[in-house]
Design a protein around this nucleic acid. Structure first.
Length: 469
RNA sequence: CGGGCUGUAGCGCAGCUUGGUAGCGCGCUGCGUUCGGGACGCAGAGGUCCCGGGUUCAAAUCCCGGCAGCCCGACCA
């Protein structure tokens, strides 16, 4: 694996490496308006794989897809005090349209609690209408001052779930289930990213929520990335939008609502959680192309063998692509490596003479001589193994870079290269402000055993602090 | 909004100090040789040197004034 350095090495300049990967793997470009993003076909194909997996889990959880408008009356935002306050700085507002000044300015949605709340109020009459479980796939706009492709852009794509329930307990249980069964399950099984699940301290909570849960992943540079969030909104939005239902006793009663989201930031997390100096490394379950069959030379025998191997792989359920010899071999190999394709099947005359082909893993670069008839079976086994091993490697990386400490000073030290874990009581208040001076934030609060607390008022909580994206 | 910096080919840059034919690398096009780890040769295409004004015989270069962008400090999927 003596590849030339086509990308800036991670150790030299991690942000630069990230930009190089995004550009050279042809995932995205900057849009013409600052902070906007053009998602290129390869990047979008990965996003579609993510959508497919997340959407299936959301439906499994009983929620239904719907669509609400991009434009929201500004007055809606002003109904929930904390919500306005939190979102005002990043709102894009339309004041002029159709050739004239608008009577009421229109906000381009940064999130949809408000419009959806309005319609929940309309649709919910009785306890029989509950729970109301909605989800939408949409674009949202949050004006960003310091954008980065996939991680922070002024417009991004996401999924936002919104639900209404008859009781606090029901809402709470449902959103916790979503957090575990949709987000964490997806991250673990599909993205191969281990995450710390916990709740946000008050300072990091969603504007208008009574409790926000997060899934924090560790990137290869030791920084944290919030990959998904789920919120208990209590009755805050129900009050603001009159989301009432008639209970079994015939009395009007306020709903409890939740919301939960995940976005194209997943793509950024994917790049930074598994990528190496050769480029992207895709977990097989997310790879648009799981195996590429490379013809070493443009010769009839070789091309024939390629077609046959590709057919076998396809029949075995592998997403496969054939790369017929055009240009130099090394160049083509490097290009597929940058794109992170999990398996490379190299078919050349030398191997064919012995009835074999070379199968190479993207992670680690292990090269195997595999008999022509065994390629499909061997490949599916390798893909399964890679999926498992990528998760195991990411878990080990994260745990090796997560340190238990006792003081704020030690936390500051440990967070230079990874995560620090310490008692929340040590950090709460003064400590949080001190850490912030060093751009270190409290990523989440957990119970001592690592489980999800019900609220930040529980005793003996621990916190995970780190630098973050 | 405060501090540092940059605008020259699609991308990355040199040239500016000391004014005088606008260059290099990558990429792109064509032909040929190559092809088991970013191949090479030859031939090409591609520029309002950010914008406006000034100085000068002559401005990418010097002067003045704009504009745009990048990086670092307070918020966020």
């Amino acid at each position: 694996m003596a590849s030339p350095n086509v990308l800036t090495p991670q150790a030299e300049d991690f942000p630069r490496w990230y930009q190089d990967v995004v550009a050279k793997a042809e995932m995205a470009d900057n849009g013409p308006v600052r902070g906007t993003m053009v998602i290129r076909p390869y990047g979008y194909a990965i996003w579609e794989r993510m959508q497919f997996e997340v959407d299936a889990r959301i439906k499994e959880a009983g929620a239904q897809n719907a669509y609400f408008p991009l434009f929201i009356p500004k007055s809606y935002f002003e109904r929930e005090a904390q919500h306005v306050e939190g979102f005002s700085p990043e709102l894009a507002v339309v004041t002029y349209a159709g050739g004239e000044e608008l009577a009421e300015p229109v906000v381009v949605r940064p999130t949809s609690e408000t419009v959806i709340g309005e319609f929940m109020a309309k649709w919910i009459q009785s306890y029989r209408d509950l729970p109301l479980l909605l989800n939408q796939w949409a674009n949202v706009v949050r004006w960003e001052l310091r954008p980065r492709l996939f991680l922070r852009s002024s417009e991004f794509l996401w999924q936002e779930g919104h639900t209404a329930h008859a009781s606090f307990e029901d809402a709470s249980a449902y959103v916790k289930m979503i957090h575990a069964e949709v987000y964490d399950d997806f991250l673990k099984k599909v993205m191969a990213i281990p995450s710390f699940l916990g709740i946000k301290p008050a300072s990091e909570r969603f504007a208008g929520a009574i409790n926000s849960m997060t899934a924090e992943g560790m990137m290869r540079d030791g920084k944290a990335l919030q990959l998904a969030t789920s919120h208990e909104l209590g009755q805050n939005f129900a009050k603001a939008f009159d989301i009432y239902f008639q209970n079994e006793e015939g009395q009007a009663s306020l709903c409890y609502t939740t919301s939960w989201g995940s976005s194209t930031r997943f793509v950024g997390g994917l790049i930074m959680a598994h990528g190496d100096d050769q480029g992207l490394v895709l977990p097989p379950r997310l790879a648009p192309t799981q195996a590429v069959v490379i013809a070493v030379r443009d010769e009839a025998d070789v091309n024939e063998a390629c077609a046959r191997v590709a057919q076998d792989l396809k029949a075995a359920g592998v997403r496969v692509q054939v790369d017929r010899a055009r240009g130099s071999f090394g160049r083509r190999v490097t290009d597929w490596e940058i794109k992170g394709v999990p398996l490379r099947v190299e078919v050349g005359p030398r191997d064919l003479a012995q009835g074999v082909v070379s199968v190479v893993r993207r992670d680690g670069g292990e090269k195997l001589a595999v008999g022509l008839d065994a390629v499909a079976a061997r490949s599916t086994a390798l893909l399964d193994a890679m999926q498992q091993e990528l998760f195991a490697a990411a878990l080990k990386f994260r745990d090796d870079a997560t340190h238990d400490v006792a003081t704020v000073a030690q936390a500051k030290e440990a967070a230079q290269e990874g995560f620090a874990r310490l008692p929340w009581a040590v950090v709460d208040g003064e400590g949080e402000a001190t850490l912030k001076n060093d751009a270190i934030t409290v990523r989440c609060l957990q119970r001592a055993d690592g489980s999800m607390p019900d609220s930040d008022t529980e005793k003996d909580l621990i916190c995970i602090v780190a630098k973050s994206y």
